[in-house]
Amino acid sequence: MTMLSINQETKMSEQLTTREGADTASVKMIVFAVGAQEYCIPILSVREIRGFEKTTTLPFAPAYVCGAINLRGIILTVIDLAAYLNIPPELENSRRVVIIVESRAGVVYGLLVDRVIDLADISTGDIQPTSDEGACLHGLVLIENRMIGILKLDTVVKHLVGESSKE
């Protein structure tokens, strides 16, 4: 397992989406911090990263939905990951960014995180499943003694689109 900086040239050209059980697939992930905790998501699902801007509050939205923003004509919602994951956010953070993610079904949304740390190649074989089933995380992975949570994006989208709002 290697750590790579964002700018570092990588040999990873054929990246895969995370599939539990697949033995040694290596997935390039973007690692970011929410509060004191680190999380990652596959880089392939990321459309862009932008600064946090004022959002428009949406009626009847869950508390973790900051509101809507305009991304070059497309309206999308931003999720406050700290609230979503129930973690106290960093205070007075001017480095907060929004990671714009596009789901496989084409739903675009933003994840508000405290800061982006780096990129990492994560071997799916190294993922340790978490105890709580079907929740926010695929599992955990250890990178240079840091425990990093692998965010389950499908669950995020489900919450967002509201297919099962009672999740």
Binding site: T56, F60, I69, N70, I75, V161
Partner: peptide, 19 residues
């Protein structure tokens, strides 16, 4: 990219770029 909101039919973008 979201869901139906009660009381809201659609959205638009204002001159300052906000929704």
């Amino acid at each position: 990219n979201y869901r139906h909101i009660f009381g809201v039919s659609a959205a638009t973008i204002l001159g300052d770029g906000s929704v």
